[in-house]
Amino acid sequence: MAENIKGKFLDFIARNFMVEIDEIPLDESLIDEGIIDSFGLIEIASFIESEFGILVKEEQMTRSNFGSVHLIVDFVKGQES
């Protein structure tokens, strides 16, 4: 399940932000690494909403939930269960 979420998410990042999948860091902040800018966060939140049916609340948009690919995947898993 988690692998599936991660795969979909990486695919989305690669297509939307013009990077190769193997260039995407899993444990570092996508922003700090220069993969996305702050607008990218809105796109990610919308992607999570449309792909997994999870509405991301304003107070959930924090570094502890969105600080890396793994954190985002954990966040999605946590919301699904």
């Binding site: 922003i31 702050s38 607008f39 966060l41 796109e43 939140a45 919308s46 992607f47 948009m61 924090t62």
Partner: peptide, 22 residues
């Protein structure tokens, strides 16, 4: 210029601020 899901969004200043720190 912007993605389709950026057409309307609530301005989440604290997070934006954090994300621009670099």
């Amino acid at each position: 210029q912007i993605p389709a899901n950026g057409i309307v969004y609530k301005n989440n200043y604290h997070f934006f601020r954090e994300s621009r720190e670099v």
